[in-house]
């Protein structure tokens, strides 16, 4: 919260201090970060910066697509990570129904939310790539349609989780919903691709791009950095969700106190500038 980076909550990296004195107690009171998350976050920031540098400056424009190909350095990795995230959600849901431990429920919920964010970025960059290359923002291609449906499916899943907050059966019901949604993915994919081939004749397929070594390297860098971002976000989202459930157990008193604290802080905090991406990691 304190926007002065000179007074970092965490730059003192001696972990053995954490259970010592009131000074460290104050530090321990801050946030969902930990030493591990800070390392991952820093790596993610560095590799993101490198991806931007290589993607925007150092890599050459594509012979067919010109500069628009630069969007693929974001689009393809985010798509892959989004599918990975939904896979983690399905896996976590199944594991929850089997093991019934809180961990798997938190994992599934956190991964679904991060996955939705990545899917959103993937759809956005995909549309911005399609406009110059295909001439339209959107085509009813099988992969696009499946991704869009996936986006909506998991928005629904998240809405269900939000509605069920406080219900004793939240974890189990969400797990069932997660699996039901995941089971749908292959059917959706199959039906849309078949529907598409029957109705449109020829589909516009992504033009085959000859990827030079530098372009492949940049793409790999993109994969690495978005995987790291996913990992970092998962750490924080998972812990946040853990906090949410703990607080939920404490009950209404806490909620009231929180509202009061919010009202109190609204006056004092003022416009804390939203720092650049992931800046709060350190």
């Amino acid at each position: 919260m304190t926007s002065a980076p000179a007074n970092p909550l965490a730059s003192g990296s001696e972990p053995d201090q954490t259970d010592a004195a009131p000074v460290t107690e104050r530090r321990a009171l801050e946030g969902t970060g930990s030493r591990g998350s800070r390392i991952v976050g820093t790596l993610a920031l560095i590799s993101l910066a490198a991806t931007a540098l290589y993607g925007l400056v150092l890599s050459p424009p594509d012979a067919n697509q010109g500069n628009a190909a630069r969007l693929l350095y974001i689009h393809v990795p985010t798509a892959t990570v989004a599918y990975l995230a939904f896979g983690v959600t399905a896996f976590g849901s199944a594991m929850y129904l089997w093991k019934r431990t809180e961990f798997w429920d938190l994992l599934a919920g956190a991964s679904a939310e991060v996955g939705v964010v990545f899917t959103g970025i993937c759809l956005l960059t995909g549309m911005l790539w399609g406009r110059p290359i295909w001439g339209v923002y959107w085509v009813w291609d099988a992969r696009l349609t499946t991704t869009l449906l996936l986006f909506v499916l998991f928005l629904g899943y998240l809405a269900l989780r939000r509605v069920l907050v406080g219900s004793p059966s939240r974890a189990k019901w969400s797990a069932v919903a997660g699996i039901v949604a995941a089971v749908d993915i292959p059917i959706v994919h199959y039906s849309t691709s078949w529907w598409n081939t029957l109705h449109q004749g020829t589909t516009i397929s992504p033009q085959k791009t000859q990827m030079g070594g530098l372009m492949l390297f940049t793409l790999g860098l993109g994969f690495l950095s978005f995987l790291l971002v996913y990992w970092w976000l998962m750490i924080h989202r998972f812990r946040l969700q853990y906090l949410e459930t703990r607080l939920d157990e404490v009950g209404l008193d806490t909620a009231i106190a929180e509202r009061r604290a919010e009202a109190g802080r609204a006056g004092t905090s003022g416009p804390t500038a939203a720092g650049p991406e992931l800046a709060e990691v350190r």
Binding site: E30, G31, G33, I74, L233, V281
Partner: peptide
């Protein structure tokens, strides 16, 4: 495209971290 990806990711990250601090 790059700007939107940057804004979405950073907004979500800031929101998550802030909420984590508030709740913790």
């Amino acid at each position: 495209g790059y700007g939107a990806a940057f804004v979405v990711l950073s907004a979500y990250s800031v929101r998550t971290v802030r909420r984590g601090r508030k709740l913790s």
